[in-house]
C-alpha cells in the first residue's frame, strides 16, 4: 500500500509531458540543423513544397485536370490528410500510403503518367500535401482492415535481418538515445517525411530511409511502395500517434 502511494506521488509530481518519453528525431539534432528546419526561409525542404504548390495547380494528363480541380485549396482540403495515412484503399482492397494515393490520382483520375517513387514530382506533391498537416498530431486511420498490415509491420520492426542480424527495434527501442559511431540513434518516429536529409542533399521519403537502415544492417532492402514497406510505415505512424508532423523536416 505504501509503495502504491509512493508511486502515485511520483506520477502526480511528473508534468504530463514528461510521461511521454517519445521524442522526434528533431530533439536528437544539433542546434545548426534544428535552425535549418525551423526557419522556412532557410529550410531547403521548402523548395520542394514550393514546387508542390505549383504542381498542385497545374493541369496534367488526358483529363487536363489539376489536383486543385477536384481537391480545391490544399491548405483547406489537405489539412490533416497526411496525419492519418497510410489508409485503406477501397479500389485495391489493400493499404495505401500517401505517395501511392498521389500516384493513383495522377494515373487514374488525371490520366497522366504515374509519377516515379522518389522522383522529383512525387516528392514535391507529397511534401506539399504533408506540409498542410504540419503541427497537427498524427492520428492514424481507424479502419479495422488495416489491423493485419499493422501487425505485419510490427513483426517486421522486431525481426532480425541481414548479415548483421539486427532488428529495427534493437537500435531504435533498445538503444535509442545512444550512438552509432558519432551519430545519435533516434527513436524512429516518422514525424517529418518527406524530409530533407543532409546526407542525401535532397528530399526523400520514409521508405527511402528504410533502404538506408536496411543497407546499414546489410539486409535486402524492401522496395518503396511494396506491401512490406507500407506495413512498416503503418506500424511506425501508429507508434507515433499524437506526435506532431513537421514536414518538411531536416535531418543530418
Amino acid at each position: 500500500m505504501n509503495r502504491l502511494v509512493a508511486l502515485w506521488l511520483v506520477c502526480a509530481a511528473l508534468p504530463a509531458a514528461a510521461q511521454d518519453a517519445r521524442k522526434s528525431g528533431f530533439a536528437f539534432m544539433g542546434p545548426d540543423t534544428q535552425a535549418m528546419q525551423t526557419d522556412d526561409l532557410a529550410n531547403p525542404g521548402m523548395l520542394f513544397v514550393l514546387e508542390g504548390d505549383a504542381l498542385w495547380k497545374a493541369p496534367v494528363g488526358a483529363s487536363q485536370k489539376s489536383c486543385a480541380s477536384c481537391h480545391g485549396d490544399a491548405p483547406q482540403t489537405m489539412k490533416g490528410v497526411a496525419a492519418r495515412y497510410p489508409d485503406f484503399d477501397e479500389a485495391t482492397q489493400a493499404p495505401i500510403d500517401l505517395a501511392g494515393r498521389i500516384i493513383q490520382c495522377r494515373a487514374e483520375r488525371q490520366g497522366a503518367a504515374p509519377p516515379q517513387r522518389e522522383g522529383h514530382e512525387l516528392l514535391a506533391l507529397t511534401s506539399y500535401v504533408a506540409h498542410q498537416s504540419r503541427d497537427l498530431a498524427i492520428a492514424p486511420a481507424q479502419d479495422a482492415r488495416l489491423a493485419s498490415a499493422r501487425a505485419q509491420g510490427a513483426a517486421l520492426y522486431s525481426t532480425r535481418m541481414g548479415q548483421l542480424n539486427f532488428s529495427c527495434a534493437q537500435c531504435h527501442d533498445d538503444n535509442a538515445g545512444g550512438h552509432l559511431g558519432a551519430a545519435p540513434i533516434p527513436q524512429a518516429h516518422p514525424t517529418g517525411y518527406p524530409l530533407y536529409r543532409l546526407e542525401w542533399q535532397a528530399l526523400g521519403s520514409l521508405q527511402r530511409r528504410f533502404r538506408n537502415c536496411l543497407s546499414g544492417m546489410r539486409a535486402e532492402p524492401i522496395s518503396a511502395g511494396s506491401a512490406d514497406a507500407i506495413a512498416l510505415e503503418l506500424f511506425l505512424m501508429d507508434r507515433a500517434t499524437g506526435m506532431k508532423l513537421e514536414t518538411p523536416a531536416v535531418r543530418p
Binding site: A182, A183, I185, E199, W200, R211, N212, S215, G216, P252
Partner: peptide
C-alpha cells in the same frame, strides 16, 4: 566532421 550512420551506399 562526424560521419553519419546507415548511409545508402
Amino acid at each position: 566532421v562526424t560521419m553519419p550512420a546507415c548511409v545508402e551506399e
